[in-house]
Computed example of a mutant assay.
Amino acid sequence: MSSALDGFEPPTRRLFQPLHIGHQFMIDQTLERAENGIVLIGSDSAGRSPRNL
């Protein structure tokens, strides 16, 4: 039986500094495996909140 979640992989949470080729590699790998990806950007100088993951 097929499900809407077939092939779903949970998100990967990483904390990074300014974009560099390692980040680009992660983004490229995600897009090779999935049709879409989401990159969330927050601030390390602000407290954790729904706006700042």
Rank of each mutant, 00 (worst) to 15 (best):
M1Q: 03
M1H: 09
A4Y: 09
A4R: 13
L5M: 14
L5V: 08
L5P: 04
D6T: 02
D6E: 05
G7E: 02
G7T: 05
G7W: 06
F8E: 02
F8I: 10
P10H: 11
P10I: 11
P11E: 14
T12Q: 12
T12P: 03
R13I: 13
R13T: 15
R14C: 09
R14L: 11
L15T: 13
L15F: 10
L15D: 11
Q17V: 07
P18T: 08
P18G: 04
P18H: 04
P18S: 14
L19P: 04
L19T: 15
L19Y: 09
H20K: 10
I21E: 15
I21G: 14
I21Q: 15
G22V: 06
G22L: 09
F25R: 15
F25E: 13
I27F: 05
D28F: 06
Q29S: 01
T30C: 15
T30A: 14
E32L: 14
R33I: 05
A34C: 06
E35I: 06
N36H: 15
N36Q: 13
G37Q: 11
G37M: 07
G37D: 09
I38G: 01
I38L: 00
L40K: 01
L40D: 00
L40H: 02
L40C: 02
I41H: 09
I41Q: 07
G42S: 03
G42I: 00
S43Y: 03
S43R: 11
D44A: 09
G47N: 08
R48G: 04
R48I: 08
R48P: 15
P50K: 04
P50Q: 03
R51S: 01
R51L: 01
